[in-house]
Each structure stands twice: as structure tokens, then as C-alpha cells.
Amino acid sequence: MATEKLALARALNESLRTALESDPKVLIMGEDVGKLGGVFRVTDGLQKDFGEDRVIDTPLAESGIVGTAIGLALRGYRPVVEIQFDGFVFPAYDQIVTQLAKMHARSLGTVKLPIVIRIPYGGGIGAVEHHSESPEALFAHVPGLKVVSPANAADGYWMLQQAIQSDDPVIFFEPKRRYWDKAEVDREAIPAPLHGAQVARAGTDLTLAAYGPMVKVCLAAADAAAEEGKSVEVLDLRSMSPVDFDAIQRSVERTRRLVVVHEAPVFLGTGAEIAARITERCFYHLEAPVLRVGGYHAPYPPARIEEEYLPGLDRVLDAVDRSLAF
């Protein structure tokens, strides 16, 4: 059967297995990715089947993981690195920004670094500090990096393989609170382009643009709005660098209203860039200013109040109402 209902974590696991099988240069590196199978079990069983030489438990040093992955890539390998949690990536930030992102350009194209850095991100799982962050804008801002995030199991399966096949470094953000959500995965499908947005639900009155964990929230918001007679389109952006501005523009030229939703703080976030670009491109089509719904300019709060911080159904619908009332 080409099609199977899989949870996102399992789809990612199958995707990694396929990549390891099809290319002997693919390596998996990270903390606890071996016997344990990763803290979210995304690499479950892979070391057993592919050996410690290809599924590598590393010392607990994120800069060392990414730095040695760069060296392995220079030798011709295609490392897939796991950073255990979003808040743990910053020890590696220097290697990612200063070395990984720039080396292809510095070498005038003679060096390629096909490295994927997988990062479980976002909140909503009641975790302790540093386990719920959404730092995607900090990477999307860096020339030389590509940044993507699947919202469901099918995209998880295909986008991860596409990221591994890319000759550019890709930061692959996995919405950790969606790891257990199941969806049909067709392993013989022809996947959509990695950096293209997808219409998750068609609508005519307003466009909700989101990615990763917020797509599900936006789909629920569209359902609720439909009950009130409002036709809301949901665009799954899938890629934060590059952003598929053409797809957003096409949608907004029809709906004339745009609300961007993400967990990350609104200030200087992905939504800010989209608002600016779409205002430039669609100024005469817009009936309302582009609105943003996201996290606040405060450290991610303790778990008992995280639902107030995270954009939920009501906050998205509030923004929909404000846009439509404009």
C-alpha cells in the first residue's frame, strides 16, 4: 500500500529510513538519536537497522554537532542533524550563521553543504522552560539558509526527503505538538515543490496564512467562521525562507484580506515580512491592513499560562473579525 495513515513523528521516521536506504552518504547525528530513538522517537529503530556508523549518538554539544556535520559535508556526506529542542539550538547558532550559511558563497560555489538541521519547535505540550520556543525568524533572516516547517504527516514525509536532497543547508522545524497527529501519507505521490505554499482550505472572504503548528488552528478557525457564513481561505506557507509570496499574492488578490498567524513573537517575525511585502504587492487589492496574530514580546511563559500566550482559535477569529470589519 502506497498510502498509509501515519502520525507526523512516524512519517518523519519513515522519511529518514527512506533517505538512509536510498543514499549511503546520508547520516543522522544528534543527542539520544541512537538506542533511545530520539526524545520524540523520530529516529526510532534507525540505529538498529543502519548501525552506529550512520546513526550517530553525539556528545552533548550543539556547536560540536553542527560543526562536525559541516566537516562531514565537506567530505561528501549529507548529515541530518537533530537538535533536541528549539531552545537548545543557540550554542550552535554561531556555526549555523557564521559558517554553515556562508561557506557556499565564500567558496564561490565550489563547496556545498547539504545539511538538514531538524528542530522540534513550538509550545502547547506543557513543557519546562526552553522547550517551547519558535525561533524560525532568527534563521529565516540569515542569507544562505533555507527554513521550512511541515504542518502534517504527509508534508513531513515528503518535505524532509526534499530537504535532505537539497544541496543547501535547510533548517527543518518540526511542530512538536503535532507529532502525534495522524494523516494519510502517499509514498508514491509526486510531492509539491519544497518551498511552495499550499492552499489547505479554499475560501473567498479572507486569507489566513500560517505554517507548522498553526495550520491546524487556522483550519479550525475557518470551520468556525464558516458557521457564521464567512468563507476563510487557509494557506499553509510550509517555507519561511524562501516565502512563497506569489502564492500569498494570488490568494490575497482574490480575498482582499490577510491575517498571518504564527506562534513566534509578532515583532519582526515572519508575519511582519509578509505584511510588508504583501502591502507592497497588493496595495490596491487590500480592503484592510494585513493583521498578525502571534506570540507576545515576552519570554515564553510557564506552561500553566501558555495557552494564553499561544494564538488559539479565539484570537485568530478575533483577528478575522477585525479584518472583515475594517
Partner: peptide
């Protein structure tokens, strides 16, 4: 390899390259 200005970074690249060898 290209010169590395941010000091020390290249020792990790060298180590990874050696792991590949």
C-alpha cells in the same frame, strides 16, 4: 580549506572531516 576568521570554528570542521575519512 578557506581561511576562517572567527577563531576556532574550523577545528570542528576538521574533526568532522576526519570522522568522514
Amino acid at each position: 580549506q578557506l581561511y576562517t576568521i572567527v577563531i576556532g570554528s574550523q577545528t570542528l570542521h576538521a574533526t568532522g572531516y576526519a570522522m568522514g575519512i
